[in-house]
Design a protein around this nucleic acid. Structure first.
Lengths: 151, 151
DNA sequence: TTTCAATTGTTACCGATGTAACAAATTCCG
DNA sequence: CGGAATTTGTTACATCGGTAACAATTGAAA
């Protein structure tokens, strides 16, 4: 261990980025090849598929996307007729977003592919390793939240 | 567990991306505020600081960066006089890149900040959680490599 | 040797993304 | 009530990043 040098391969931010990039690039092929979706569009579809009707702001918070990403993804999926906007009864700034039948069909087609993708990766790991990554990520998520509160 | 829905919060690619984004955004403040570096520039600096002289291709493979990112980061650090290019004795396509004194100074200033950043996060976790994330990431790295070989 | 393929690094082009400015609507207070 | 501040969502602008084309060089094959 040289104290003057940083081992990039063992450095947490680098490892996370490298892994997220690799996993994302592989996974994105599924929704890109099949439907020509971008990642923000996939996330929007996945969020609405899971939660039903939501507003753009709620989607942004829930799926960790910038509001401009959400806005553009909503426009894109609307043009495909995969979602529709409905006005709020009392607040005219807000739009309630819901998947159309076509959007739900796409979602239902992608969910099993997503599951298989994840399974295929976890299959390469031993049970103890699987628990380690799953609970380790959860612990790191908690740590990052506490970090935020601190500041 | 609803088989028709995908829980995005538990989905590996999503969790990795979310964490990598959050960690990276926090960490980037260190090199951005202090030196105005971009992430590719920080990675280039960190790689050369750790390994000494390298070629652009080797840096790309080692730091998981596209060759255009490397090329642009090299230009940027060269203009700061943080690195210099030296021709190869036998292959005139290749350039050997090395940090200058100024580049090494910046590297030495950033390494402790990077260490503290990582420590501050891991401090929030219990020892068992720390081992879980560290070995879990290693296992996932192995799994992704095997995945690649498969195809 | 000579020609064709592969490698190295740069750059033009285009799509993606965040910042900041913005319009419209709502809420907060005085 | 009424003006200021906030919230919601969109868009202009600038920047970043990958694809593909490229020039230069080297290696391989014939």
């Amino acid at each position: 261990m040289n104290d003057d040098l940083l081992s990039l391969e063992e450095f947490l931010p680098y490892r996370l980025n490298r892994l997220a990039d690799a996993v994302s690039r592989d996974f994105s092929r599924l929704y890109r090849d099949r439907f020509g979706l971008t990642r923000p569009e996939w996330r929007l579809l996945a969020t609405l598929g899971q939660y039903g009707t939501m507003t753009a702001t709620a989607i942004g918070q829930h799926s960790a996307m910038h509001k401009t990403k959400v806005s553009r993804a909503v426009t894109a999926l609307e043009e495909r007729r995969w979602l529709r906007r409905a006005p709020d009864a009392t607040d005219r700034r807000v739009e309630h977003l819901t998947l159309t039948k076509a959007g739900e069909d796409a979602y239902r087609e992608l969910v099993p592919l997503a599951r298989e993708f994840e399974t295929r990766i976890l299959e390469q790991m031993r049970p103890a390793e699987k628990s380690a990554i799953i609970s380790g990520l959860a612990a790191l998520e908690r740590a990052m939240l506490q970090q935020r509160d601190h500041d």
